[in-house]
C-alpha cells in the first residue's frame, strides 16, 4: 500500500535523500574521476572536479608497469574457483539437509556456521607454516582452497534457506511416480533451485573477490589477486593518486555491478536468512 504524502514533502525528501546518497557514493565517484586525470592534476589544489584534461594514460600505465592483467586473472581464478568448488561440495549437502532432515540437521547447520566465527588470526600461524611446507604460499591453488573453506558455511546456509522454500509436495509427487533420488535431483529439484544457486554464486563471488585477510597474508608477487596488488600502493614510493585510482576503478567496477544486481539476495544471504 502506497503511503500518503504531499508533493512538497516528497520533493523535500527527494533532495535530502539524493544529497546523502551522493555523499556516501562520493569517494567512489572521486576515485573514478581521479583515474582520468594526470598525476599533476590529481593532487592539484584547488581540486578540479570535471574541468580537467581527461586522459586514459593511467589505465595504460597501470597495465604496462605492473602487469595488471595478471592480478585480474588471479582474482578471477581465486574468486570464481573457490565459489564453484564450494558449490560443488555444498549443493548436495544443502539438498540433503533441506529434503532429508535428520534429528541432528539443525545442530549441524549451527555448527557449520560457528566455524565462520573463528577469527582468522586464530589459525594464521599454523596455516602459514603448513602452506610454507607444502609449497602453497603465493599460489592460486592454495588461496582457492582457503577461500573455499571459509565460504563453505555461507554457501551451505544460503542454499539451505533457498531449498527449504521448495514445496515438499512436488517431491512426493515425483516419488509417487517412481523417481529415484538421482532423478528427483536432476529433473525435479534442479530447475526449481537454479535461482537460489545463482544468487548464492553471485554473493560468494563478491565476498571472495574482496576477501583481504588471507589474500594479503598468503600471497606475494606471483599469485596476488587485486586486493593484494592494490595494497602495494600503500608504500610511500607508490604514491601516484591517478594510477592508484585507475587500478582501483578497474578492481571495483565489475564487482560493484554484480553487487547492484544482487542487492536483494545480499540481505538474506548475509543474515543467514534471519532478515528477509
Amino acid at each position: 500500500m502506497a503511503r500518503r504524502t504531499t508533493l512538497p514533502r516528497k520533493l523535500g525528501v527527494t533532495v535530502v535523500a539524493w544529497g546523502i546518497g551522493f555523499l556516501v557514493f562520493f569517494p567512489i565517484l572521486w576515485t573514478v574521476l581521479t583515474s582520468f586525470k594526470t598525476e599533476g592534476e590529481a593532487i592539484a589544489s584547488p581540486p578540479s572536479f570535471l574541468a580537467f584534461e581527461w586522459t586514459l594514460e593511467n589505465y595504460r600505465e597501470v597495465q604496462v608497469r605492473s602487469d595488471y592483467g595478471k592480478h585480474v586473472f588471479n582474482s578471477i581464478v581465486i574468486a570464481g574457483g573457490s565459489t564453484l568448488l564450494g558449490l560443488i561440495i555444498a549443493v548436495p549437502a544443502a539438498w540433503a539437509m533441506a529434503f532429508q532432515p535428520a534429528k541432528r540437521t539443525k545442530d549441524l547447520l549451527m555448527w557449520m556456521l560457528s566455524t565462520k566465527m573463528m577469527p582468522p588470526v586464530g589459525v594464521l600461524v599454523p596455516l602459514y607454516l603448513i602452506f610454507r611446507d607444502l609449497g602453497l604460499l603465493d599460489t592460486r591453488l592454495g588461496l582457492t582452497i582457503i577461500l573455499t573453506l571459509i565460504d563453505l558455511p555461507i554457501i551451505v546456509w544460503m542454499l539451505y534457506t533457498y531449498f527449504k522454500e521448495i514445496p515438499g509436495e512436488i517431491l512426493e509427487a515425483a516419488r509417487m511416480d517412481g523417481a529415484d533420488l538421482w532423478n528427483e535431483i536432476v529433473h525435479v529439484l534442479t530447475p526449481m533451485a537454479v535461482p537460489g544457486i545463482a544468487s548464492t554464486l553471485l554473493l560468494n563471488v563478491i565476498l571472495a573477490w574482496n576477501e583481504a585477510f588471507w589474500t594479503l597474508n598468503l600471497t606475494a608477487a606471483k599469485a596476488a589477486p587485486l586486493t593484494a596488488f592494490i595494497a602495494s600502493y600503500s608504500s610511500p614510493e607508490g604514491l601516484f593518486y591517478a594510477k592508484l585510482s585507475a587500478a582501483s576503478t578497474m578492481a571495483i567496477a565489475p564487482i560493484l555491478i554484480l553487487g547492484w544486481f544482487s542487492q536483494k539476495q545480499l540481505v538474506r544471504g548475509l543474515t543467514f536468512g534471519a532478515v528477509k
Binding site: 502506497a2 503511503r3 504524502t5 516528497k10 520533493l11 525528501v13 527527494t14 535523500a17 539524493w18 546523502i20 546518497g21 551522493f22 556516501v24 557514493f25 569517494p27 567512489i28 572521486w30 576515485t31 563478491i206 573477490w209 574482496n210 583481504a212 594479503l216 587485486l226 586486493t227 593484494a228 592494490i230 595494497a231 600502493y233 600503500s234 592508484l244 585510482s245 582501483s248 578492481a251 571495483i252 564487482i255 560493484l256 554484480l258 553487487g259 547492484w260 542487492q263 545480499l266
Partner: peptide
C-alpha cells in the same frame, strides 16, 4: 516516498562492494 528511490539505494549500497584495500587507500 521520493523520486528515484531505486537509484539512491544503489548509490548508498555501493561502498559495501568496494574491496577493503581500495577503500582504505582511497
Amino acid at each position: 516516498p521520493f523520486f528515484g528511490q531505486g537509484a539512491v539505494r544503489l548509490l548508498m549500497i555501493a561502498p559495501f562492494f568496494v574491496m577493503p584495500t581500495v577503500s582504505a587507500l582511497v
